[in-house]
Design a binder for these strands. Structure first.
Lengths: 334, 334
DNA sequence: TTGTACGCGTTATCAT
DNA sequence: ATGATAACGCGTACAA
């Protein structure tokens, strides 16, 4: 046993002492080695190894007013849609030297603004928010904190700060045009109750009504979407009307709808077409392959991370609103 | 405009000043209101509202040596298996007043030990690690930090500290016994290359060989598993041998295998049985419903959070190794 | 290139 | 029940 009770973690001072240097030099050797003589750096590294020193980011952040922490707020992660975005976000942030404080807001009792307030107590260098609809309280808190923010998964000309998203309404419209082009006239909606889905519906209905088609029938399902909800949802839709296409607010529902249809002896798309949303990884290889709307979910994470890190590090950026777009992929199911 | 340039966030002192109290009293009113006269608390709350004060957890953590931060390390999150665990973990931790620092180790270049070292610089109050196989460096860092740790998703009699998991080997054995009981004799494996899957395979092979059945044929697929890999994997298996059952290392692969089999005109399980793992949400409602091994992934998160929070807060616990078990659910596919 | 002095915003501790 | 004082461990600013 060398030191018996190292009851307290080694500090910069401990390292400095064993290296025979001042703590400031050690700090520099660790954070800005280019400002320190190589030999000295080596001595410091040696001392770090000996002491088992691990920097205290709490103290560092307090002193420097930079936490290298990004707070991320998402509604849910068992949703499948957000997971890729979060993973890319995390990877990209790690690459840039940031850690991710992840907050799943979904089932929390707190309002989003309370939640963000507690997150801000960590003094993150930036915040990622899902969606663009925030309470006045939330806006006030964020603007007051004067902290870089990226809103994701939605589009608006007036974001809080920066934004990476796409237009749900346009997706709805594109879907509507697709339906018309393919000759579908009796659409049924298998729809989740979230705001973004509602916007897609609006775009869809707008296009349909422009062509004299009334509001489609609809079955609502709760979040998170699942295969089971897709199956039961379709079953319910089939009792309503004689639809020729079912538009689903997610690929998961679409997969379930297809499964249910085929289990009843219907052939998709011959007897009933199905459209999904999201281009989840199973969509392309499903049988039948699911016609859906693809959005680059990873890209959202990547760009959000880059936008934030650049801003934090003072890199000039021309654009702070990024529309990553989408494309409708016609496959077999519709 | 009241105050024109609040260039710096309000501090405890600012609140104290506007409330006409000392900063210490404000701190107490916020953290331990029961030690402060109700009227005083009210005055403080008022001042907090006026100033828009948001506590600085960096400073608080530095002073109190408690960060109310839990670091969580997972290999991947687009894996579907871990997502529910993480979500529950996050929810449960939030309930207890902790934030989650999430680190997706999967594609990072850093070794797990470097990664944990940077996480420890945040001075988390606890750490959640996925798996039980760690480098000596990692172990040394963790033990040196003397920080509560929960390892999850695996079982060992000698965890670093606490553990919530289940026996992959036993799952393999249970699967093997199921195969034998159902009369399957020619098993093929559709398998991912992770350590836990390897352990399940080992248990499976052990049981089979005990009954005179040799090593099953196998096709390896990369992580993360997908429907597409399930389909192509089965296609490959079908060229090898005349299997009567395909054992998959995840439900996702199983779903793909079933789809591929049926697309070739085979009927599952009549012509070929398929078994999955995980009891993902689609397994029960798939057509045919997937026979699989269910583990309570949410429970892992819940218990890990509770174990950590209890330990941190000094609650006495009898057990620090929790085997959450599993059960094989026989459905239609095998 | 290295060192000194001080402050970051909070809580622990002791005193009143 | 409230206050005064001294850490907590580090980085900024400036000096040498």
């Amino acid at each position: 046993m060398k030191s018996s009770k190292p009851t307290r973690a080694p500090t910069l001072d401990d390292v400095a002492r064993t290296a025979g240097l001042s703590s400031m030099t050690v700090s520099r050797a660790l954070n800005t080695p280019q400002l320190v003589r190589p030999k000295t750096v080596e001595k410091v590294m040696q001392a770090v190894r000996v002491t088992g020193y691990i920097p205290n980011a709490l103290a560092g952040g307090l002193a420097s007013r930079r936490s290298r922490l990004i707070a991320v707020v998402v509604p849910q992660i068992n949703n499948n849609m957000f997971v890729d975005t979060i993973q890319t976000l995390s990877d990209e942030l790690a690459l840039r030297g940031y850690h991710m404080l992840l907050c799943v807001a979904g089932y929390t009792q707190q309002t989003e603004s309370e939640l963000v307030a507690t997150l801000l107590s960590r003094r993150p260098d930036g915040v990622v928010l899902t969606g663009i609809h925030h309470s006045p309280a939330l806006k006030k808190i964020i603007l007051n904190a004067a902290i870089p923010v990226v809103e994701i998964w939605d589009l608006t000309p007036t974001p809080l700060d920066m934004l990476v998203g796409f237009s749900h309404e346009k997706i709805g419209m594109a879907t509507g045009e697709f339906l018309l082009r393919k000759g579908y006239r009796r659409a049924g909606l298998l729809w989740t109750a979230d705001r973004r889905a509602a916007q897609r519906k609006q775009g869809l209905c707008e296009v349909l009504s422009r062509h004299g088609i009334g509001e489609p029938g609809q079955v609502d399902v709760p979040l998170p979407a699942s295969l089971a909800l897709g199956r039961s949802g379709l079953a319910q839709l089939l009792t309503q009307e004689n639809y020729d296409v079912i538009v689903c607010s997610s690929d998961t529902l679409a997969q379930g709808a297809i499964m249910e249809a085929e289990s009843r002896g219907m052939i998709v798309p011959r007897d009933l077409a199905v459209i999904g949303f999201g281009d989840l990884d199973f969509a392309a290889s499903n049988r039948p392959a699911i016609t859906t709307v693809s959005i680059d979910r990873r890209d959202i994470g990547c760009r959000a991370a880059t936008l934030l890190a650049d801003r934090i590090e003072g890199v000039e950026r021309d654009e702070s609103i990024i529309d990553i777009g989408f494309h409708l992929i016609e496959r077999e199911s519709a």
